[in-house]
Simulated scan of single mutants.
Amino acid sequence: MARRGQLHRMLAEGIVHGDAADFLPLLPGGGVDLFFTSPPYADARAYSRIHPDRYVEWFLPFAEKMLAATSETGSMIINIKNRVANRGTLKGQRHPYVYQLVLALQQMGWRWIETYIWSKPNAVPGKFGPRTKDSFEYVYHFARGERPYFDLDAVRIPYKADAAEIARRNNDANGRRNTASGFGRDRTKTYLRGGADPGNVVSVPQTYNQYRGVAHTAAMPEGLAEFFIRCASPKGGLVVDPFAGSGTTVVVARRYDRQSVGFELHERFVGVARERLAAGQADDPAGVLRAVGQ
């Protein structure tokens, strides 16, 4: 009951100022449907510098607390980006801290469900040495249990095939149903769903402080949050962002009828995030799903 009371107070506040490490243990055990977050990237932002060599060690205590708070059908979805090391023995190379983190989370007990690519059509060119500009980031889906909540119907995309082709495919009697992993879909039935299964590439233009007053240098586009909140959490469910930043996750989750709260360590972002929450501000372009093999 005490934790439920704490949750009620945090939900009323919306964006809670403080360290997620202090607030995550106050969440009801097994009560969170979705943690959706973009934690500070390694060695990337002046307001939160974490050396890539130490990143896994830094993140795992948060992940352990999130695991305890996640429901049996709940998920943790992380947007994260690797980087080129600027010092040390790996200077000039891509640092493997993202991959190291994924494996460490799996070893902790998180089930690695899927890897998504956030494609950024308006990525800014930069001085990256002998490589092209960064135009994508990773989004990793982890779950606590074997059957996490996931609603494909919420994110289906319009068919590109004409009516005759859809009718032909409806006659396919050999659709794949199950795999040895215990999952699978009967493609003979997908055309009854009103849209195609989306691919695991999500195209969303990058946000460049688009919301007036956001001083955050790594604001998440609302279209990215929208896609994962809609498919990976039920209406009325609890969505939490431990690294809330300018409040995008909380704003979008509440817009789609979820309960939501965010924790933010840096006070200068909290006020703006609360203003966004009060206004329900929506000025980012929506995500565009790309179906693979359609």
Rank of each mutant, 00 (worst) to 15 (best):
G145D: 14
R156D: 07
P198A: 04
R147T: 12
A215C: 04
R177H: 04
N174A: 11
E222C: 09
R185A: 07
R212F: 11
G223E: 07
I166E: 02
G182Q: 01
L238E: 02
A219G: 15
G237E: 05
S233F: 14
G145S: 15
K235P: 12
Q206M: 08
P221Q: 08
R144P: 15
Y140F: 14
Y211P: 04
G194C: 14
V204D: 00
D172N: 10
V202D: 04
V201P: 03
A161S: 06
P158G: 09
N174I: 01
R147Q: 09
I157R: 06
N174E: 15
A218H: 10
Q210E: 13
S233A: 09
M220K: 15
E146L: 14
N174H: 12
T217M: 03
I229L: 07
N171I: 09
E222G: 12
R212M: 12
M220Y: 10
I229M: 14
P198S: 09
R185S: 09
A167P: 14
K235D: 11
V240Y: 06
G199H: 02
F150N: 11
T179P: 01
S233K: 12
D172G: 03
N209T: 13
Q210C: 07
K160S: 11
R177A: 05
N170S: 00
R144L: 12
G223V: 04
E165L: 05
V201K: 00
G194P: 15
A219W: 02
V155I: 05
L238H: 07
R144E: 08
S181M: 01
G236Q: 08
G175A: 00
R187Q: 06
D151F: 06
Q206F: 01
T179E: 06
V239F: 08
A167Y: 12
L192N: 14
G236L: 12
D162Y: 10
A180Y: 13
G213Y: 05
E165W: 01
N178Q: 09
R176A: 02
